[in-house]
Structures are given as C-alpha cells and as structure tokens.
C-alpha cells in the first residue's frame, strides 16, 4: 500500500530526497564551492518537482490540433515557469561564484569559518 503510493508519486519523493541532499550539503559543508553545489542541487530539485507536476503519461506537445482533446496535452505553463527560474538560478550562481572568487582572493581560503572576522 505504502509502496504503491510511493511508486505513483515517485517524482515527489525524488524531488524531496534531492532537496534534502542539497540542503544538507549547504548546511554541513564549510567549503564555499560545495555550499554553492548544494544550493544548485536544491534549485534543481524544485525545478524537477515543478516540471513533473505538468507531466502527462503519453502526453502530446501543447499545440492545438483540430479534433484532438486538449486534455491529452502536457501542461506547458510549468515548463515556461522553470525556464524563467533557470535563468534566475544561473545568474544567482554566477554572482555567487564570482563572490566566492573574490572571497578567496582576499582571505586565501574558501572556508567561511577560517577567514578571520577582523581581516580586511
């Protein structure tokens, strides 16, 4: 019973596991690059979840063809949303990586804890 429910909603379960992996990496690792990787895994898990919401078994591309029922189409809206969100995620990651680079140049380490507070 439980396994059947899980098998039917495998996309949600995978998204949740991915989210937790990303969040764990973000919190536990002290290396900035690893934190950023964790962040990206979190982002991807949310994208995956949203795209899978609009998925349909044996669905068609969302193009109106006379005679075909619209209920057989894959929902295009989550995909459009995720495209926008991916663009945002790319720019956020780029900014974060460039800041990490600057951080490394100033402190000589990528470890947030090792960089001294009073070091300019």
């Amino acid at each position: 019973m439980v396994w059947n429910t899980l098998a039917d909603n495998i996309n949600y379960a995978v998204a949740m596991v991915l989210f937790c992996i990303g969040f764990y990496t973000l919190i536990i690792r002290s290396n900035l690059i690893k934190k950023i990787i964790g962040l990206m895994v979190m982002q991807v898990s949310v994208f995956f979840f949203l795209v899978s919401v609009g998925y349909l078994d044996a669905g068609r591309a969302p193009i109106v063809v006379p005679g075909e029922p619209p209920s057989a189409m894959v929902n295009p809206l989550p995909q459009a949303m995720i495209l926008t969100a991916i663009v945002i995620a790319v720019s956020t990651t780029a900014l974060f990586l460039s800041l990490a680079l600057r951080f490394y140049r100033h402190y000589g380490t990528l470890d947030m804890d090792k960089a001294k507070e009073d070091q300019r």
Partner: peptide, 21 residues
C-alpha cells in the same frame, strides 16, 4: 569589493538564496 562587504554578501546569499528557492 573589499573583504568584509564580500563576506557579508556571501552570508546574505547563503540565507536568502535558499529562501528564494
């Protein structure tokens, strides 16, 4: 572009980016 503001911005991002996700 100096040390402390960058450190502050990274701290800010580490909390605010997951929040946006």
């Amino acid at each position: 572009g100096t040390g402390l503001p960058i450190r502050a911005a990274i701290k800010y991002m580490l909390m605010a980016v997951p929040a946006a996700i």
